[in-house]
Amino acid sequence: MINIILDQNRCQGSKCAKCAYVCPNNVFTINDVVTVTSPVYCKMCQECIEICPKAAIILNIPDQ
């Protein structure tokens, strides 16, 4: 399974939440902060990484 790391020190949370809006698989949830709630659905499209203005998202892909 893909490990998605969301650096809360960099993330602007609900003020931005661009990652949650762009994700086609609803991996993120928006409350006061953005959280990764469904990493199993991540298809590694990396749209969240490309749109994050603070580079707060890291995808760790395990060796297969």
Results as ranks from 00 to 15, higher is better:
Y21W: 09
K15M: 14
A20V: 09
D63E: 13
Y21A: 09
M1Q: 06
K54R: 09
N9P: 06
D32G: 07
G13R: 07
D63W: 10
V33I: 10
K15Q: 14
T35G: 02
V22E: 12
I5N: 12
C45I: 04
I58T: 15
N26H: 14
A17E: 12
V34Y: 01
T35Q: 05
C16R: 04
C11K: 07
T37C: 08
C48E: 04
E50F: 15
C45T: 01
N25H: 15
D32V: 05
K43N: 01
I51L: 00
N9G: 08
M44H: 09
V33W: 11
C16M: 00
V33Y: 10
Y41G: 05
I49N: 04
S38Y: 14
Q64E: 07
C42K: 00
N25M: 12
I49M: 05
N3P: 01
I57K: 02
T37Q: 13
A56Q: 07
V36T: 10
I61H: 06
F28D: 02
Q8K: 15
Q8D: 13
V33L: 10
M1P: 11
F28S: 01
A56T: 00
Y21L: 10
K18S: 13
M1A: 14
S38W: 06
Q64S: 13
C42V: 02
K18E: 06
V40M: 07
I49Q: 00
Y21M: 09
M44K: 03
M44P: 03
N3C: 03
N9E: 15
V22L: 11
D32W: 07
I57P: 02
I30H: 00
D7F: 10
N9Y: 11
C19I: 10
I57F: 06
N60D: 09
V27M: 10
N60A: 08
N60G: 02
C16K: 03
V22N: 06
C11D: 07
Y41E: 13
S14P: 07
V34I: 12
I5A: 04
C48D: 04
V34Q: 06
T29A: 12
S38H: 15
K18H: 11
I30W: 00
V27S: 03
Q12G: 08
V22Y: 06
V40D: 11
F28K: 04
I4W: 00
C19Q: 07
I30M: 03
N9S: 15
I57T: 02
A17W: 05
C16G: 04
C19K: 06
L59P: 00
T29I: 08
K43W: 00
S14Y: 13
R10G: 00
N31L: 08
N3Y: 04
Q64M: 13
M1F: 08
K54S: 03
I58D: 09
C42P: 01
I61S: 08
I58M: 13
Y21I: 03
G13V: 14
N25K: 15
I2W: 03
N26K: 14
V33T: 14
L6N: 12
I5Q: 13
T29K: 13
D63P: 02
I51S: 05
E50A: 06
